[in-house]
Structures are given as structure tokens and as C-alpha cells.
Design a protein around this nucleic acid. Structure first.
Length: 835
DNA sequence: CCAATCGCCTAT
DNA sequence: TAAGATAGGCGATTGG
């Protein structure tokens, strides 16, 4: 039966089919159902060219090609096509191979035969998107297949997929469509486990689509729970699997218990217990799927979890990246996001005494578990995590999965390679190994300690992308230093790039296109009549911004396929040169530059008052903007303060909106403590208002009360990320650190673990310093467990906190002659200058 | 008391 | 192996 559909590509893989290869696309259709689409007609290949820079073909070219033809699993050699390489334009032969997994071996064989190999490390399913210029949102027409494993295998599939539909089509039947928000299904789950035995006590799952959700709970026999949970995953067929800290806890636990409970004689028992992958239950899939399509959740050495056909998105990680919370427990994040929704936190269970809790009140524990399965869904919704990933996928033209777990170089590859292919640019391999020297980065201007009034902040709009566009910077336009011509842009670092009249770079074109897209979405946002449209375009324009900013990083990296060591240096050299020129021009004109960092300049206004400041800011922006380097008047400050350290300042914004601007200081940092933050905020307010006397008196009185032990201990919590590796037996290995015992937060983590609480590698650990110098001469700390176990707060080392307050605040008040020591003593010491 | 080092976190 | 970049501040420990 023929069918047509519009859908979003959630994930992609491939399947060998006799001598052919079929791409598998897991789709979520606009109407809401899931489809597994088998796409026929794409052939795996790599490309070869003669080594070196000579354009003449060697005499024995026919014999050499014949030798390639005879390599095992090579199926066809196409006629040569001239392609650009950094060694000149040369004929390239497209070499088709039997299956994508043959490529690595054939690549090495052909290298051994002295060929230059290109386009030889591109993930096969991604090739489909590159060749057809598809993004994740597609329309296809093809044939629906009956729910019959044999019929599906005859069409090139693996068997009965757990999707609503299975269909087949040819590559000609796919086309790109405008991005839309697909009705993705999210599956969130949570496990409660025994501390004593490590067994799963109960589980809960919440399934959500189109804002509607349903909850399921599981208790009883552990094997049955795993089976039921797995059945629910397969029946509800979610696109996204989430939960709080599932990467480090729940998914490893599922796998661990599955391995313990599997029946070695029954090859399919692994799939029955943990077959969450979107593939049929087969013995091969249970073995791990030789073709990289296992049915069991899979994690390679320290990397993200993968699950064939679905996306794993940890709500903890997304919340951490988006919100940067000072603490990272589920409870803390939930209070941060939903302060008024007490119903989300009504259940409370002491997880350090889970066995007793489970014995005493299993119903409560189960309800608590269900609550913790719902919260990740609420969190992802609150931060629009899924929509943002889908927008990023649309802009980067990658499957949703690549937007979620992929790397920035994969996004850039997706755009650059498809353009390179169209323009006959050979695609080099990813450079591997060998670290190169770090390049010089942005320029940061010295800042004097003190207070300044009426400051205009100007900055370059999209500085690095603009530099890349205006100087036509690209892998394909860089020429060697001995290239003498006026038709080049030469960076202050010496590197030369051809002008676009000679050869237009791929990257500048892509960046210009992205800038255009951003303008488009911004315009659509403005014109949108309903909220969901406006939100959609906001997410799209933001995704474009993210992607544009990743270009510089990728091209400045040592390993990216389309870059060269000199490219990153050239970009930053131009940036430094631009900004320094403006600084010196301004200084020469008599306009003092108070501060500058990379692409921003803080200039002192010649006249007092907001109106004069705004005019001055606009005037400077106009005057210093030139082709390819647009300077914008970003903010006007009535007052600016720094204690004299780069990247640390505070200011009162009066234009365009009234606001307080703080950068770098402890109040911005997640490893500071609330009492310091409050003190510093109070001090900043006073300093900005010109009340210096009030500023240090305020600090002195606070320090005095801390010395006397008069502060809320909850305001003294310190929090830092802690690494570590959870071993098979449940112990944690901290040997990633050269001296783990010398780190306070490792001590806090160890004490958490000893107390029976979970430790999750990479998560922040909260603690109180109880002795600045303990028995071993090092700091003694106690973990903060009040919220989790109801433990009483630890007794702080008050003099330590007084000291730290004085040190941090002293740096600031020092500007006015009040040192750390003075703050601690409460009065200014007489200073004698004898000489 | 110091400089060197490790480690985290931030600015851009 | 897998991989966006560098500049910079600061806290704690270590070793003299």
C-alpha cells in the first residue's frame, strides 16, 4: 500500500541487505505516529586520488586502478572527477564498496597502495542527508509494509520493529521540508534501589506526548519489573528516553541487573529484560548488534549512552547546562524551577535509608518514585530542551539524535561536507592524534581598580564569523605564505587567504547563509501572531546563533578535517588587531578605554548624563563600524566598578534597559556560598551608589557576626563538581585526580558515599567547612545532607568563613584602603611609612 | 611565607 | 581513543 508522510528523523542507522545497503530512518510523523522507513538506493563509497601535488597521472594509472578493482569488497570504480585538494586540483575516483563497514579496512588497504584517500570516514546514514541535502524534517512517499517480520526482512529491514508503521522507499522519494515541531514522545523513568543488595525495589515511568502524560508504576519481582518496563518502552515507542541522572545511575543499573538476571541459555532474555532499542527482538541484536545497532542501551568508554533508534537525554545534564544551578539534586532544581508547585515535592523519602523506608512504607516510596519520574518531564518542558534540540537539528541538518548527543564538529561537518560535495572539494579525513601548540586567543585589556562613571560598552557583532566572512577565511582559500598576489587578504599573523573574486570559500558562504537565516527567524518572530510560532522562531534563531558560534571553535581546533593550524591563529590575530586599533584610536582622541575583552570596549563618556552617554555610544558605533566589522553600542553604564582584575566587573546599566551587570565575581559562580554572595551584592550596591563608607561598614558588621557564629549555616554551603569512576563493585575510584585526598570536595564525596548516599560522577557535591586546618593539616569538610536525609547541619568553622569573606571582600574594599586584615579586625590599621 | 601546581569555573 | 577555542581568576595543597 502506498503512503506519504511528513516527519522528523529521530535517529538513523543502516542494515546490509544482500549486496545492497538500506538506510533505516526512525521517524516521528507530523500526525503523531512513529515510522521506521527503509530507504533503498544509497551506496557506500570512498574516494581516491594520486598522492602528491603533481597534476599529471602516472603512467601506470590503469594498472593501479585495476589493483583497486581487485581489492576485496570493492564493487565499482566510477569515472574520475576533478576535485580541489590542498595539494591542487586532481582527478578523484569514487570507489564503491559492498557495505559501509568495509570502508575502514579498504581505506587502509588503498593507503598501502599509495592512494590519497578522501570522503572515507563519513557515517553512512548521514551520507543520505548530505547527498539529498536533507535536514531532519522530511517528506517521503513509498510503500507501507504489513506487520509481518518476513515481509519487512524482504524489504531490507531487520524484522518486526516496535514502531507504529514500517515502510520502504527509494532515495528519490525523499525531500526536505520546512522545520516544524514534531509531536515527539518522551519516556521518563526512575528506579529505587536497595542499598544493601543493589536490587531494584520499584520503578516508575511517565510517558508524554503533546503535553499529555500518563504514569506507570512497577513493584514486586525484579525480573518481572524489568520485563514490564521493557514492554512499556516497546509499546509506548518513545523517541526520547529521559530521567534525572539516568546516564550515571538508572541506565547503568538497568544494564547491571539485566546482566545479573539474564538466562544464559535463552539468547533473547537480554532483550526481554532491557531491550529498549527500536529494533526487533533478535539474537543478533542481543549480542550487541555487530553493525552497531544493539537493542540494549550501550555506552562506550565514558561516552554518552546510545539506544538504537531513540535518543537518550539526561534531564540532569540539560538542567545543568541551561540553568547552571548552584546545587544539582533533583529537589534543588525542582525548587528552583517550580517554587510554587509544592505538589511536585509532596513525597519525601530518605534515600540513604531506602531499605528501611521500603520495608516500612512501600506505597510512599512508590509514589515518591513516580514523582521523580514526572519531574524530568516537567524540567525538560520548562527549559524547552527538546524543542531547542529539534531546532538545532533543523539548522545543522542532522537527525535529532546528533543534535542531542553529537559533537560540534559533527554539526559543522553536516553543513560543510554537503557544500564541498556539490562544489567538487575533496573531503579530507579527520586529523587524528598529535597535539599541536595552543594558538593565541583574544585580547584582554588591563582594568584599573576603582569606580568610573558614564561608560559606553561597544562590541563587535558576531566578531569571529564576521572576520571569517570579510576575509574569505576557509580551508579552501588559504594559500601558502610565498604566494605573492594582491588578490589576497593577509592576516596580521601572516596567513593569506584568496579574495572571494578568485575563489569563494565554503565557510564564509555558510556563515552568510546562517546570518540570513537568523534575520529571517527574527523577522518571523516579530511578525508572529501566536505564541507557539513566536517561540518556534525564537528557538530557531537561537539555534542559528549557537551554530554560527561553533564554527570558530571547530576551525581553531587541532583535529578538524577542514582546517589548518594557521586558520585559528589568523582569525584571532585579526580580532586582536581590530580591537587594539580602536582602543588606540580612542585613546588618541582622548576617550579613555576602561576595559576591553576580545570583542568589547568600555569607553568613558566625555560628558555626564544618560543622554550624552547614549549619543556618544551611538556616535562611536557609527564612526568605527566598517565593512565586515560592525561595532554596536550595546549598553550604557551610569557607573562601573572593578577591583582591578580582568574578567571581573560590575556596573549599573541605564541603557537600553535599567539593569545590574555583573561578570566574573563570586556572585556569578556556582562554587561560592550564599552569605558571600549577599554580602558582595550589598557592597556593590553601596559602591555603585558612591557610599564607600557604608560599603565597608556593611562588610565589617557581617564579618563580626560570622566570627560570633551568627549566620544561617545553609548560607555557608560550598558546592563543587567532583569527578570519579564508579566501579563494578559500587566503590568509587578518584584516581582521575593526581592527589584526591588533597581536595575538599573529594572528601565530601567520600563522606556522602560512606553515609549510604549515591555519588554521581561529575555532579556537584555540597559541603560545609568544619575545620580550616584539620588533624591532618588539611581542610576538614562535612557533606550537606539536610535536604536528603534530614541530618542536622554540620557545625561550621566560623573563623574559616570569616576569613574567606574577608579575603573576597577585602579584594574589593582594598580599592578604598580597607584590606582583608582591616575587615577582620573591624578597624583600619595605622600604617607607617618609615622610608 | 613563597612559588608551583592542580582543579574548577567563568568571560568571550 | 575522541575531540570547538583561549584568557583569566582564585582556592587549596604541596614542598621548600
Amino acid at each position: 500500500m502506498s503512503a506519504e508522510e511528513e516527519a522528523c528523523i529521530v535517529a538513523a542507522s543502516y542494515q546490509s541487505f544482500g549486496s545492497k545497503t538500506v538506510v533505516e530512518l526512525w521517524l516521528r510523523a507530523r500526525e503523531g505516529h512513529s515510522t521506521l522507513l527503509l530507504v533503498h538506493g544509497l551506496r557506500p563509497f570512498l574516494e581516491i586520488a594520486v598522492r602528491g601535488s603533481s597534476t599529471d597521472l602516472p603512467d601506470d594509472i590503469d594498472e593501479r586502478l585495476e589493483k583497486v578493482r581487485n581489492v576485496k569488497d570493492v564493487t565499482l570504480i566510477h569515472d574520475p572527477v576533478d576535485k580541489w585538494t590542498d595539494k591542487g586540483t586532481k582527478p578523484h575516483w569514487k570507489v564503491e564498496v559492498r557495505q559501509p563497514y568495509n570502508v575502514p579496512k579498504i581505506r587502509e588497504t588503498l593507503r598501502g597502495y599509495d592512494w590519497k584517500v578522501s570522503s572515507a570516514d563519513i557515517i553512512f546514514p548521514q551520507r543520505l542527508l548530505l547527498e539529498l541535502d536533507l535536514g531532519p524534517h522530511i517528506a517521503w512517499k513509498g510503500e507501507l509494509l504489513p506487520s509481518d517480520g518476513d515481509a519487512i526482512q524482504d524489504a531490507g529491514g531487520r524484522g518486526l520493529y516496535p514502531t507504529n508503521r514500517v515502510a520502504r522507499c527509494n532515495i528519490e522519494d525523499l525531500r526536505s521540508i520546512d522545520a516544524f515541531a514534531a509531536p515527539l514522545i518522551t519516556f521518563s523513568f526512575d528506579l529505587e534501589t536497595s542499598i544493601e543488595s543493589g536490587h531494584i525495589l520499584c520503578a516508575a515511568a511517565v510517558i508524554q506526548q503533546n503535553g499529555k502524560s500518563e504514569t506507570h508504576t512497577f513493584r514486586g519481582d525484579e525480573r518481572k519489573m524489568l520485563e514490564d518496563l521493557t514492554r512499556l518502552v516497546r509499546d509506548s515507542d518513545p523517541d526520547i528516553i529521559t530521567g534525572y541522572n539516568i546516564d550515571n545511575f538508572d541506565l547503568p543499573k538497568i544494564k547491571e541487573r539485566m546482566e545479573e538476571l539474564e538466562d544464559g541459555n535463552d539468547k533473547l532474555s537480554r532483550a526481554i529484560l532491557a531491550g529498549w532499542g527500536r529494533v526487533p527482538v533478535t539474537e543478533e541484536a542481543c549480542k550487541g548488534g555487530r553493525r552497531g545497532a544493539p537493542i540494549i542501551p550501550n555506552r562506550q568508554q565514558n561516552r554518552k549512552w546510545t539506544l538504537t533508534g531513540r535518543c537518550v537525554m539526561d534531564a540532569w545534564w540539560e538542567a545543568r547546562m541551561t540553568l547552571r544551578p548552584k546545587r544539582e539534586t533533583l529537589k534543588f532544581v525542582s525548587e528552583l524551577l517550580f517554587p510554587d508547585r509544592e505538589e511536585l515535592r509532596k513525597m519525601d523519602v530518605d534515600s540513604s535509608r531506602m531499605d528501611e523506608e521500603w520495608a516500612a512504607r512501600p506505597d510512599v516510596v512508590l509514589e515518591y518514585c513516580a514523582q521523580d519520574a514526572l519531574l524530568p518531564i516537567e524540567i525538560l518542558d520548562a527549559i524547552s530542551a527538546t524543542a531547542r534540540k529539534e531546532a538545532l537539528a533543523a539548522v545543522g541538518k542532522v537527525p535529532l539524535e546528533t543534535a542531542i548527543i553529537g559533537t560540534t564538529s559533527q554539526w559543522v561537518d553536516s553543513l560543510v561536507i554537503r557544500l564541498a560535495d556539490r562544489e567538487n572539494i575533496a573531503v579530507p579525513m579527520t586529523r587524528r592524534g598529535g597535539k599541536s601548540d595552543a594558538i593565541t586567543g583574544g585580547y584582554v585589556h588591563e582594568v584599573k581598580g576603582g569606580r568610573e562613571e558614564w561608560i559606553a560598552i561597544l562590541d563587535f557583532k558576531s566578531m569571529y564569523p564576521s572576520i571569517m566572512i570579510s576575509n574569505n577565511i576557509c580551508y579552501t582559500t588559504r594559500v601558502d605564505n610565498d604566494y605573492t598576489s594582491t588578490e589576497v587578504h593577509q592576516s596580521p599573523s601572516g596567513t593569506k587567504f584568496l579574495k572571494k573574486e578568485i575563489r569563494e570559500g565554503l565557510v564564509p558562504r555558510l556563515l552568510e547563509d546562517l546570518m540570513g537565516q537568523r534575520d529571517h527567524h527574527k523577522a518571523m518572530m516579530k511578525g508572529a501572531t501566536d505564541d507557539s510560532k513566536r517561540l518556534f522562531h525564537d528557538q530557531m534563531q537561537f539555534a542559528v546563533k549557537i551554530l554560527m558560534n561553533t564554527f570558530y571553535g571547530v576551525f581553531a581546533s587541532a583535529f578538524y578535517r577542514f582546517t589548518h593550524q594557521d586558520i585559528g591563529s589568523a582569525i584571532t590575530a585579526w580580532a586582536r588587531s581590530n580591537i587594539k586599533k580602536i582602543i588606540s584610536d580612542l585613546e588618541e582622541e582622548g576617550h579613555p578605554v576602561v576595559y576591553s575583552d576580545t570583542d568589547s570596549i568600555f569607553v568613558s563618556s566625555p560628558e555626564e548624563g544618560k543622554e550624552a552617554l547614549v549619543n556618544f555610544g551611538h556616535e562611536l558605533a557609527n564612526r568605527f563600524t566598517k565593512e565586515g566589522a560592525e561595532l554596536e553600542f550595546e549598553k550604557g553604564l551610569s557607573v562601573f566598578f572593578s577591583h582591578g582584575a580582568k574578567k571581573r566587573y560590575v556596573g549599573r546599566v541605564v541603557w537600553p534597559e535599567e539593569d545590574l551587570l555583573i561578570r566574573g565575581y563570586e556572585v556569578r559562580r556556582t562554587d561560592s556560598f550564599d552569605l558571600l554572595n549577599k554580602t558582595m551584592m550589598g557592597t556593590f550596591e553601596r559602591i555603585l551608589d558612591g557610599d564607600e563608607e557604608g560599603a565597608y561598614q556593611h562588610v565589617i558588621s557581617l564579618i563580626r557576626s560570622v566570627k560570633a557564629g551568627e549566620a544561617d549555616v545553609a548560607d555557608l554551603i560550598l558546592s563543587r563538581s567532583c569527578k570519579g569512576k564508579v566501579l563494578k563493585d559500587g566503590t568509587v575510584d578518584f584516581s582521575v585526580y593526581s592527589n584526591p585526598d588533597g581536595l575538599p570536595y573529594v572528601q565530601a564525596a567520600k563522606k556522602r558515599i560512606a553515609r549510604g548516599l549515591p555519588f554521581t560522577p561529575g555532579m556537584k557535591v555540597s559541603y560545609i567547612v568544619t575545620a580550616a586546618k584539620g588533624v591532618d593539616g588539611r581542610q576538614t569538610v562535612e557533606p550537606w545532607l539536610v535536604a536528603e536525609t534530614g541530618d542536622a547541619p554540620p557545625v561550621p568553622d566560623w573563623s574559616f568563613y570569616a576569613e574567606r569573606l574577608a579575603r573576597a571582600m577585602g579584594r574589593i574594599t582594598e580599592v578604598y584602603g580597607w584590606s582583608k586584615k582591616d575587615l577582620l579586625l573591624g578597624s583600619r590599621q595605622q600604617t607607617f611609612d618609615f622610608f
